[in-house]
Design a protein around this nucleic acid. Structure first.
Length: 704
DNA sequence: GATCCTCGAGTTCA
DNA sequence: CTCGAGGATC
């Protein structure tokens, strides 16, 4: 391929070529790592990568988020490279009843300060497949990504190109258009595929959804090409201009661009309309030819959508009204008790394996003692108050189509006349435990630490959000824990593995299942994590009530391990130090006590200090100041807001990185005062805090 | 003291 | 994904 001299490239040329190179190189990468014949020779690959770097050097502002120069040599473990979504791919809140749908609409109306009757919604079937984001730049597909964790997905560009209903290029004037939708497989195609798989002696799929997922995530895209996948477009991510003013209009635009959109999408004027459409779609469910698991409702007006904004993981303006889950009856053979890392003892039902909606289930969660008795957390009856006993015939469903649960018990078939006695079972098992007043769970309360607790703690320590040590997963942890020659009983032991192995007569490398390479890889992976960010370390300690978020808050507050540890040490005796912790927004007395008590218990303290002696701890990054003028500020709203409700103003401010408080104090940076503002505005004036009116606030909030 | 939201901890199967 | 419970707010 002939390429222009770099010095003669225009900005547009450069942009187009960078997009081209990104796709080309990532295609080559995947083909290379997918045990396939490399599509291009190494020398060509290197030349293209060099050219990419040269263009980036000349036009640094054009460097792409998915730039090939950032993708170092080897692909990640999964075989697909990662793509960070420009706009996060969120999940939807669920509604399980007409009442939930009414609540959804009323909540929105209240948030916006309008009547429920004035709102319009779209309703469309919720396709049971897997979501896919297709990014087009200047009308050409530059990459395709799975949802992943919502922030970052996997690059499945080559695979997406093999789906007939995914256009390679579209006629649009938009610089950037990210189309989102669902990849699925029809029932007919699914059955034919399984027939072919069976004849070929390959594994068959349990259901169309698994078949679609398995087919899209093929490292070898030529396999994807042989799989009958289809794509419905229903949403969008980043766009360089608005698609429409309404949800319906935007989806119609996608349809005009050549995407398949769902014919059953309609506009509804009222909640009653929504429910009616739900019933209609449910009636057609079995004859659609593809799986759906509910109906999605969205606020039609896109301006209202943007005013409504997002909660932590879901948009406020959409909900998924789920169909009742599929159920199956089976025998509950036994109730077992599992031990968690906090010592929580949770009951699990062992079941005679049964197919529930295409998946074979043999376990189900029973949550806690009360749940088995037929009571929820507040003492209200569930399952009509029926208790669960070993030997019962039970009805099982998968909550959220994932977690198996017991929906019902057939009392007529019951033969066991003994209700399940949680406390008695624990004593039979020789487990000393107690259930605290007002608590739902039983916790281990013996003198000696339980092996199970220690093992779960170690698993937590190496988990993905903690130390994330490659090659040291749950299985290896269990093996090392009971290993007589090379035991790992606490986190610090991980970091002495290699020196201890060096002193041993029988080396890890000589054991069955291990070799020189795998043991060296493990030691290297461990060494790589001797440098660890502070928040990961705090999270990894596994302190009760201190999860990922609390660990980040603590890390942001204290910045360095020394500062953190110093305050925690002093907090036992110094009220001041304790209050420094409790005053962190998001941390209260219970979390603080848990942190302080744990770190002062003799054994934990010793373990922590020992661990830390093997590590270099990276200080917290001070949050980059956001571009918004209100970011990091504390704002108080007072008086009557005329253009938005309180809830909306608060959500908007928080989305911009501000904190919203109810009362004016010395910490307040700004007061937004509407008509009728009284004492708060007065107090603000006394304190010399900035006071602005609603219009000035809106201008500021929108100025970005 | 009630209520909403978010986090933590526990859960299944491919 | 769901439940229980902590934290913030009114």
């Amino acid at each position: 391929m002939k390429r222009k001299d770099i010095s003669k490239l225009t900005v547009d040329d450069a942009k187009t070529e960078l997009a081209e190179l990104a796709l080309l190189l990532s295609t080559a990468n995947t083909a290379y790592h997918g045990q396939d014949e490399p599509e291009i020779e190494d020398a060509t690959y290197d030349a293209l990568k060099r050219r990419n770097a040269q263009i980036e050097a000349k036009f640094p502002e054009l460097k792409r988020r998915d730039s090939p120069s950032d993708q170092v040599g080897s692909a990640p473990a999964s075989g697909f490279s990662k793509i960070k979504h420009a706009v996060p791919m969120l999940s939807l809140a669920n509604a399980f009843s007409a009442e939930d749908v009414h609540d959804f609409a009323d909540r929105i109306a209240k948030f916006l300060g309008v009547t429920t009757e004035s709102l319009k919604f779209t309703a469309e079937p919720k396709i049971d497949g897997l979501s896919l984001a297709l990014r087009y730049e200047d009308g050409r597909l530059v990459h395709a990504a799975t949802r992943g964790d919502g922030e970052t997905g996997e690059d499945v560009s080559q695979n997406a190109l093999k789906i007939p209903s995914v256009p390679q290029s579209i006629k649009t004037r938009l610089k950037v258009l990210e189309v989102r939708g669902e990849v699925y497989m029809t029932h007919k195609d699914f059955e034919e595929l399984n027939k072919r798989q069976k004849i070929a002696g390959e594994k068959t799929f349990a259901n169309p959804r698994n078949a679609a997922a398995g087919s899209l995530r093929q490292l070898d895209a030529t396999i994807t090409a042989q799989r009958p996948l289809a794509f419905f477009a229903y949403a969008w991510g980043e766009t360089s201009a608005d698609l429409s003013e309404t949800q319906m209009g935007a989806v119609n635009t996608l349809s005009d661009l050549g995407f398949q959109t769902n014919p059953l999408m309609m506009l509804a004027d009222s909640v009653e309309d929504l429910i009616q459409h739900y019933t209609l779609i449910e009636k057609q469910r079995s004859s659609l030819g593809y799986d759906i698991d509910g109906v999605v409702y969205k606020v039609d007006d896109l301006r209202l959508q943007s005013r409504l904004g997002f909660r932590a993981t879901t948009p406020r303006w959409a909900v998924a009204h789920k169909f009742p889950a599929e159920t199956a009856w089976t025998r509950l053979t036994e109730i077992e008790i599992q031990v968690g890392r906090t010592g929580a003892l949770s009951p699990v039902a062992r079941l005679e394996p049964v197919n529930v909606g295409g998946v074979v289930v043999s376990n189900a969660t029973l949550h806690n003692e009360d749940y088995i008795k037929g009571l929820d957390g507040k003492g209200n009856p569930i399952r009509d108050g029926k208790d669960i006993r070993e030997g019962d015939l039970v009805q099982v469903y998968r909550a959220g189509d994932v977690i198996p649960k017991v929906a019902d018990v057939d009392l007529d078939k019951r033969t066991n006349d003994m209700p399940f006695d949680f406390a008695q079972r624990l004593s039979e098992l020789g487990i000393s435990a107690q259930r605290a007043e007002g608590d739902a769970v039983w916790r281990y309360a013996g003198d000696h630490p339980m092996d199970e607790v220690a093992i779960e703690g170690l698993k937590h320590f190496v988990s993905r959000q903690a130390f994330d040590i490659e090659g040291l997963g749950a299985k290896q942890i269990e093996m090392f824990y009971y290993d007589p020659d090379l035991p790992v009983k606490r986190p610090a032991d991980i970091f002495t593995l290699q020196t201890r192995d060096d002193q041993n007569l029988t080396k890890l490398a000589n054991r069955s299942g291990w070799g020189k390479t795998s043991s060296e890889n493990l030691f290297r992976a461990i060494d790589e994590k001797r440098l660890i960010p502070l928040h990961r370390l705090i999270f990894a300690l596994g302190i009760r009530h201190v999860g990922e978020i609390a660990a980040k808050l603590l890390s942001q507050t204290f910045v360095s391990w020394d500062m953190f540890w110093d305050v925690v040490e002093k907090a036992k005796s110094s009220e001041d130090a304790r209050m420094t912790i409790e005053n962190i927004d998001g941390i209260g007395p219970i979390v603080a006590s848990s942190l302080i008590d744990t770190c002062h218990s003799v054994s934990a303290r010793e373990n922590i200090l020992d661990l830390v002696s093997h590590l270099r701890i990276e200080d917290a990054q001070i949050l980059a100041p956001s571009s918004s003028p209100v970011s990091g500020k504390t704002i108080v709203f007072t008086g009557t807001l005329e253009k938005m409700t309180r809830a909306e103003a608060k959500a908007k401010a928080e989305a911009l990185g501000a904190k919203v408080s109810g009362s004016v104090s010395a910490k307040t940076d700004m007061v937004v005062a509407g008509p009728g503002a009284g004492s708060k505005a007065k107090k603000a004036a006394e304190l010399g805090v900035d006071i602005i009116d609603e219009d000035a606030w809106i201008e500021m909030a929108n100025s970005k």
